[in-house]
């Protein structure tokens, strides 16, 4: 049996940290599908975010040209956009802020839509700006699956709400249902 998805990508901003921790901790320890997380973070401040997100899982910040590997959970590093190249390697990009953000969720989602098409699952969580909405719509347009955290359950609803407004075909789920959905689609 093969997995429905080759990659799960999760984007979030204000109010998303606890949700990401919940999702990561619920994932089985040997999940095949790589997970790529993009969070809005402060620049030029030393950050222990990867440890903060989960005590159970090893989360790494990819370096340029690193292959996207199964069983791995990745976090976009501070102050870089994180893209995936056609040969499924990471590329870091230090270009202009997008939606006032670097890393920008749109940048990562959009490159994942290009590379993975229908094999991408994108999840957009709580946040106070619209970064990620256009990218999630691109994942859906490329045949992948887009899920947003139900705005009514999000600490900040702008981010998931923008995605719902921007395109049809995005699923709106509570965090518990989101976890159930992921578990049903992966090994």
């Amino acid at each position: 049996m093969t997995d429905r998805y080759d990659v799960i990508t999760i984007g979030g901003s204000a109010g998303s940290l606890a949700v990401i921790t919940k999702i990561l901790d619920a994932l089985p320890p040997h999940i095949n599908t790589p997970v790529v997380i993009v969070l809005h973070r402060l620049r030029n401040v030393r950050s222990e975010m990867s440890r903060l997100l989960s005590t159970k899982r090893t989360i790494s910040e990819p370096e340029d040209k690193e292959p996207v590997k199964e069983h791995c959970i990745y976090l976009a590093p501070q102050n870089y956009h994180l893209l995936v190249e056609a040969e499924r390697t990471f590329m870091l990009d230090y270009s202009e802020l997008v939606n006032y953000s670097r890393p920008s969720i749109d940048m990562t989602f959009s490159s994942i839509a290009d590379v993975y098409g229908e094999k991408a699952l994108g999840i957009l969580l709580s946040g106070a700006n619209k970064d990620g909405a256009a990218g999630l719509c691109q994942i859906v347009a490329a045949g992948g699956m887009g899920i947003v955290q139900d705005p009514q359950t999000a600490d900040f609803e702008v981010m998931p709400r923008s995605a719902l407004d921007m395109c049809k075909g995005v699923k709106c789920l509570s965090v518990a249902d989101m976890i159930r959905y992921i578990m049903g689609e992966i090994l």
Partner: peptide, 9 residues
Amino acid sequence: MGIKETMKF
């Protein structure tokens, strides 16, 4: 080099 660049590849 930049802190996310690597020589290893």
